[in-house]
Design a protein around this nucleic acid. Sequence first.
DNA 1: GTAAATATCGAAAACGTTTTCGAAAAAACC
DNA 2: GGTTTTTTCGAAAACGTTTTCGATATTTAC
Lengths: 342, 342
Amino acid sequence: MKPVTLREIANKLNISITTVSKALKDYPDVSPKTKFLVKELASTLNYKPNAFAVNLRTRESKTIGLIIPVIVHHFFSNVIKGIVAQAEKKGYLVIILQSNESYELEKKQIDLLMNQRVDGIIISLANGTIEYKHLTDVIKANTPLVMFDKIAKIVNCSKVIIDDRKAAYDATQHLIDIGCRRIAHFRGSLLPQNSIDRFLGYRKALDDNGIKYDPSLVYICECDDNSFEEGKENARLLMQEHNDVDGIFINTDLVAIGAISEFNDAGIKIPEDIAIVGFSNWFMSSIISPTLSTIDQPGVKMGKAAFKQLYKEIKLKKRNKPVEYQQIVLKTKLIQRDSTKL
Amino acid sequence: MKPVTLREIANKLNISITTVSKALKDYPDVSPKTKFLVKELASTLNYKPNAFAVNLRTRESKTIGLIIPVIVHHFFSNVIKGIVAQAEKKGYLVIILQSNESYELEKKQIDLLMNQRVDGIIISLANGTIEYKHLTDVIKANTPLVMFDKIAKIVNCSKVIIDDRKAAYDATQHLIDIGCRRIAHFRGSLLPQNSIDRFLGYRKALDDNGIKYDPSLVYICECDDNSFEEGKENARLLMQEHNDVDGIFINTDLVAIGAISEFNDAGIKIPEDIAIVGFSNWFMSSIISPTLSTIDQPGVKMGKAAFKQLYKEIKLKKRNKPVEYQQIVLKTKLIQRDSTKL
DNA sequence: GTAAATATCGAAAACGTTTTCGAAAAAACC
DNA sequence: GGTTTTTTCGAAAACGTTTTCGATATTTAC
């Protein structure tokens, strides 16, 4: 009933706890014979070391924390998948928390994870996060921290991202290439770095093609959730305010899909009347009608890369070696589908 | 740098560790004055108890394990969301593992969680799971276990499910109500209980309406993953083998969406030529064209219910009280959309 | 045969907490 | 004032492991 301990094994073999422990870990100062006996008995008794005791002693929890804004998003659940898979390979468990895009919750969760003495933390910031003290505190406490996707440039730690600016540039250039000249942009929330970068990429593409930037064509949403509804709402506004727009670059696929749905209902033809490019390559985008052109953002790969970097830093820290923070930039690619096939 | 311990607080105040510990936990045998001093110092030093030490002593980890077949599924990520949210309310953390529908992995992961001494486990079985020893072992070890969605009827523990049989009956009856007479069924994998139940519901509805059951209209997929591709493949087969079918009840929305996509490509009209009902109410189903009629399966609610039950059992176990296992059945409802609007 | 080197073991401290139990001090009672 | 009760504290054991270091026992060297 109760889990087996070293003591029990020691008692049954009439040897000390010390020797049992050493035998199991192949210390050189225990004879082959006792090693054999110990290992055999341990396996028949199905001995499993008590993780708490080990952790207390070694100050390693073999556990990492992951904080993401929302779980129910194709991109994020892919990242989770990548992280969990990679972590398991290295014998690490992952504690997942959802910040719900709330700065306050995010702070509390960081606290929780630190109290749990996780070996490292991977995080994608909430849109509402404007201060970074809780993050620098993690670094000060010497706990490895890796940020991905929604990062804070100012915080000094490793990051796994895509080149949002370039991706947005590509998306906008694509719209221009197929003949769009009045191009709107749904940029979502104002704050997060990737929202900013995508906006800048959009603007740069306009500039480089001699198209005048019109601020009234940029739709911001303070709603903090990049939702389907946001897409519908923005599309409605756009139809009222600008009936001359012939292309839109939209921050996130889900929002783009909301817009498509609204345009479909309103009888506006995609791509003939308005061409649309989304962002992230949600699975959904390939089955909506018309199918949505988008930027492929490799979620699983990002998750794996983030864990790998974290793992590296955990190991370095253990050996008291200096770590140098990496900025890992993953490749994206434009996927053309029907929403931009003129 | 190093985390603060009870000892440090004790030293600074010139009192014993015991008293510090008691003061922080409001034991009655410490004076209000020292309580005040201790608490004040603890908060200025930002003292946080070492979770390992606490756990080692109290044999409570305040952590639960969650094993699900796939994270990147709308239904499952909603369940995760429900569990994580509810757990956080009670101060519990969730370790999430993905079995990838593999029995072997599932076994290993149960082992991992047990070694971590989690306080309880919530699981949705892999399709490949045919033996249940790893699960009964959990129960034997006196660790609360709650199964949801994909359960094993034979295992004696609490379960959170929907009435798959009734839901499937409703879906099939709906097809009959709108005039379908040759109704196929894509049942997915053979093994899991809900696949069986949905099939039985389908069959019962046929029986009750005097429609002869034709085994050749039931499409099984051994591919173990309920995918979009499975839907396309089955749709192709169906078109070759049975051009008289006028309705399909499909095990999962994602598969249904694959089928819709294939039918769309083949120029088969939905619902005029074939009406379709899916299962689960993925978000995607409301935006595909035609929109998909389906059974709403409340993921977040299931997650919350599962955690609540687990929590109850953890508390009961702690007080050495007997627990009685619950079978919680959540309500589903049919959502009619365009794929069955004749 | 003695000295030195090696092989094998175990006692004990430590990780940071919680809780039992007894002791000392203070207060209450007669 | 002496006894009892109450308040307040701390020593110590315990949770299960890891690791240091010293103690035997055995082998090797001469």
